[in-house]
Design a protein around this nucleic acid. Sequence first.
DNA 1: TTGTTTGCAAACCTTTTGCACGTTA
DNA 2: TAACGTGCAAAAGGTTTGCAAACAA
Lengths: 165, 165
Amino acid sequence: MIIGIIIFVGHAHSHEYAVDPGWSAAALADVRARGLRNGGARRTVIEHLGGQSCCSSAQEIYDGIRSAGGRVGIASVYRALDQLVELELVQRVDIGDGIARFEPSHGSGDHHHHLVCDDCGRVDPFFDPALEQALEGAASRLDYGMRAHEIVLHGSCADCRGGGA
Amino acid sequence: MIIGIIIFVGHAHSHEYAVDPGWSAAALADVRARGLRNGGARRTVIEHLGGQSCCSSAQEIYDGIRSAGGRVGIASVYRALDQLVELELVQRVDIGDGIARFEPSHGSGDHHHHLVCDDCGRVDPFFDPALEQALEGAASRLDYGMRAHEIVLHGSCADCRGGGA
DNA sequence: TTGTTTGCAAACCTTTTGCACGTTA
DNA sequence: TAACGTGCAAAAGGTTTGCAAACAA
């Protein structure tokens, strides 16, 4: 039997999803610290990811880099993403359309989850302190060396429900 | 500013994951009620899913049906799954390996989420009342017509951590 | 009967791999 | 220099689609 009390105090919709300017530098340093080199492709992928505030697919990252003048191969994008996920610097996100998306692994401060509109495909980040608390509670209660978690909510965005503007 | 208190009382590991014998019948009825026919393939997929207690991939469902003597095509399995997800009778689950999995959409009673061992690939269902509460709270707080949600926790199972048996 | 569903095979698309060349430390 | 990283192109694997035959109502 388990009895628990959670008290949360926070703002529900006021979280800022600004990009974290320090993430790229930290990731590059971490990569180097683990004995890996930072060739053009990996560095570019890290720098591109650092400028994103929510998740992007490998193709989107590739296109973004190319249209900014970078000359990466998509295979290198996939390879870099794999390694960054492995190092827990990047989080993989599956929103249910069969395309893997990736975003910087934020520290507990900037952690968010995803809201997917099944009508138009739009993805919105959200942050809910009570949910985060409960998740950490569940993670510690379950005896399972927890390293990452993902929450995806499916529904319809305001625009698609027509109520919007 | 939001202030909330959640008090939960429950068993963490005591939930039963028995298959729901009524799901198949209900799903078949629902399909018929919506004007669709129940040809061999769709019926067989529904009946197979009804016998599962956790998620399975399209290939696993196909193999399961074939080895039980059924003669479905895998395209029909995919088509049936798509339709069942559309009707919200089946829930799609993405555990991060690029393979879509599917399981009966349980009512709130039998609802569970997934624990994925990143070392051996094992998937375990879990149920956590506090987490479920928090999720419903978050869903109602966010203004987003919520229809489904998914939580995936990644870590290492007891076996892989070596502490196990 | 008549529109729906099915199975097969081909097509599709995302992701992975082989390999020779370029780069980093 | 020597190991590592990269790009290209080809291969792989999961999923979708076209189509004619089979089937449910």
